[in-house]
Amino acid sequence: SEEELEEFAKEVLRRGITIIVNGIRITEVEIFVKVLREILEKR
């Protein structure tokens, strides 16, 4: 749901943790923004 997305976004921003994806360091915020864009483009 959109509320869950908002909560996830807030949690990500609070933690600001960097994770490893395919050997490249990407912040969770960047991943969230990318996923959010993909979701919005599909609408």
Rank of each mutant, 00 (worst) to 15 (best):
E28G: 06
E6K: 11
I20R: 05
I17S: 05
E38R: 00
R43E: 11
K42V: 09
V12W: 01
A9D: 02
V29S: 05
R25T: 10
V33T: 02
T27M: 08
L36T: 03
E7N: 12
I20W: 01
L5T: 01
R25Q: 12
E11P: 00
E2V: 13
E41S: 09
V33E: 04
E38K: 06
I19K: 00
R43K: 13
I39D: 02
V21S: 03
V35T: 05
R25K: 11
I20E: 07
I17N: 04
V21A: 08
K34R: 07
E2S: 13
E6L: 15
R14H: 08
G16P: 03
E30V: 07
S1D: 07
I17H: 07
I19R: 00
L36A: 00
V33P: 00
K10S: 02
N22G: 09
E3D: 13
L40Y: 05
K34Y: 00
E11A: 08
E38D: 12
K10A: 04
L40R: 02
I24E: 07
R15I: 08
G23P: 05
I17K: 05
E28D: 14
I39Q: 05
E38Q: 02
L5R: 00
V35Q: 02
K10H: 03
L40G: 04
I20F: 03
A9N: 01
V35E: 03
V12G: 01
I39G: 06
F32D: 01
G23E: 03
R14S: 13
F8S: 02
E11K: 08
I26N: 06
E2R: 13
R25N: 12
E6V: 15
I20N: 02
E6S: 07
V29K: 03
E3K: 14
A9F: 15
V33G: 01
V35N: 03
K10W: 04
L40P: 03
I24C: 10
K34C: 13
S1I: 14
E38T: 06
E30T: 05
K42A: 11
E7G: 06
E28Q: 11
E6F: 15
V21R: 04
E4G: 11
R25V: 11
E38N: 05
T27D: 08
T18Q: 13
L36P: 01
S1H: 11
E41P: 05
E4Y: 14
V35D: 01
L36G: 00
R14T: 08
E7M: 08
F8K: 01
E2Y: 15
R25F: 09
E4L: 14
K42Q: 12
K34H: 04
T27Y: 12
S1P: 10
T18M: 09
L13C: 02
V35P: 00
E28N: 12
I39S: 05
R14N: 10
N22Y: 02
A9I: 15
E11V: 04
I31N: 09
S1C: 15
F32N: 03
E28K: 06
R14M: 11
E28I: 08
E41K: 10
A9K: 00
R43T: 09
I26F: 05
R37A: 06
I39H: 08
S1R: 11
E2C: 15
N22H: 08
V29P: 08
I24M: 09
T18W: 06
V29L: 14
V29H: 05
A9H: 02
V35H: 07
S1Q: 08
K34I: 08
K42D: 10
K34F: 02
R37P: 00
G23A: 12
L40W: 11
T18I: 15
R25L: 14
T27K: 06
I17Y: 06
G23L: 13
T18F: 05
N22T: 06
